[in-house]
């Protein structure tokens, strides 16, 4: 289904665009406090950059950089970051996901600590969404075999 694309224009343009897509994804995640955006949207853009590489090159090429094991681990790491920040709040004596108490371990005030806690969970959401996007695309596009051209 997904075959090696030999079109030099497609490959060059996607190679040129990928860093900008990654940068824009990080901007959307980090700037979610001030503009529309956040973990879900930024994670989708991150995943889209990997999917663009898979379409322009082939699946094996991308899997050399982002292995399947790594991707599956990242799927759980995002949720773990989110839940872990909640547990840190719990250990510091506040309610679950009550980021204000993070001011005790961070050199900022309560309001700023809540903003930083929000930022931390946005990163976790972004990692999970990115990894899930990539794994869903991989499994659907290759029929679960993760090899290009294996499904007619």
């Amino acid at each position: 289904m997904i075959k090696q694309c030999d079109n030099v224009i497609v490959q060059s343009v996607s190679r040129f665009l990928t860093p900008f897509i990654l940068l824009f994804a990080l901007y959307v995640i980090a700037h979610g406090h001030y503009s529309p955006g956040g973990g879900f949207q930024g994670g989708c853009i991150l995943g889209a950059s990997f999917i663009l590489s898979m379409i322009a090159y082939d699946i094996a090429e991308v899997k050399r950089r982002m292995t399947e094991k790594m991707n599956t681990v990242l799927t759980g790491v995002g949720v773990l970051i989110y839940a872990g920040i909640g547990f840190i709040c719990l250990l510091l004596g506040a309610n679950y996901l009550d980021y204000g108490v993070l001011a005790e371990i961070l050199p900022v005030g309560t309001a700023k600590a809540r903003a930083l806690g929000t930022f931390g969970i946005e990163i976790g959401v972004g990692i999970t969404v990115m990894a899930v996007m990539v794994s869903i695309f991989l499994n659907l596009a290759s029929g679960g075999e993760h090899e290009e051209g294996s499904v007619e």
Partner: peptide, 22 residues
Amino acid sequence: EETATPNAVTSVLADYRGYDTL
């Protein structure tokens, strides 16, 4: 005042309603 986040959508999504987003 409470979350230092100008975007109210983000502060509600991730802070006030953080459990939902989890």
